[in-house]
Design a protein around this nucleic acid. Sequence first.
DNA 1: GTCTATATTCTGATAGAC
DNA 2: GTCTATCAGAATATAGAC
Lengths: 170, 170
Amino acid sequence: MAWSLSEDKGLAGWSLRELAAGVGMRAPSLYVYFRAKDQIYDAMFGESYRQLLERSVATPLPDEPRSRLHAMASMFFDFAVENPARLQLMFWRVIPGFEPSAEAYAPSLQALTLGQEALAGIGIADQAAMDMWTAVLTGLVTQQASNDPGGERWRRLLDEAVDMFAAAYL
Amino acid sequence: MAWSLSEDKGLAGWSLRELAAGVGMRAPSLYVYFRAKDQIYDAMFGESYRQLLERSVATPLPDEPRSRLHAMASMFFDFAVENPARLQLMFWRVIPGFEPSAEAYAPSLQALTLGQEALAGIGIADQAAMDMWTAVLTGLVTQQASNDPGGERWRRLLDEAVDMFAAAYL
DNA sequence: GTCTATATTCTGATAGAC
DNA sequence: GTCTATCAGAATATAGAC
């Protein structure tokens, strides 16, 4: 429900009253489950990276290097663009003062490690190349979400971007 | 002053009272200059793109294609990363419900056009290539601002990224 | 566990004196 | 143009009945 509100009104655009109403409760009842609003963001943050992790392990990784890059890129792009509020929470720093707890942060490290291993398996192992990879994907995602939300303008460039990266780093 | 508050506390992290205090006033006095808070964001939005425009025209454009790309990339990256709050306002959609007015939007279109002309001058004229260019730059900027604020981790990859792009599109 | 009622504080915005 | 005073409502959060 917090997600559906965030999609409609932005990540910071809803109150505890609205959230409670959405689940058929009143605001004070939420405090049985969360000590404060930040803890709700924290739970959402953790859940987001657990979803990414889940999606990552569910995505078959081809052995052929270029194919693997395409598969990883598609998985990540579609996941990231799927939910703009989640994108803001995961990859931008949008909620003033919110810092994820160590517990919520853990799955994000796992997801990162998993991605790095997948790249290492096709010979992309140095930090710079990996950072370039994340930058290219993040750029396409950011442009898509910011300048053509719901569209395909940058989605269509994904394969081309992967080929460009592959030509330089594979 | 709105800028300095935004840098400290986030774009949405300050109130009219705080802003007024910062300029040695009380909150109601602001309404002489702005009809509402959104109009302050609007002014900031317009100012940001006017700054980018100003920076763009002040940056000499080499004729040699690859050099031109490097010059454009450095200018844009440094400008974008310089002020995280400005980055959020200009390139992400972070303030719930805020839409720039036509007047504030105008300089952003000018800046875009200027960049497109600079690319067209070295033979990069089709939409897809231009979109790829903005995506690559945006990605580096976003990663730098989000994951290594104040650092140089993605700034160091800028030349490499430009070369990668040049190899594919020049 | 959920509620009503409420505390407290903050918000953007307005009225009207000077 | 700037102020004091204030509105109306929002926010998060707590107390305590049931």
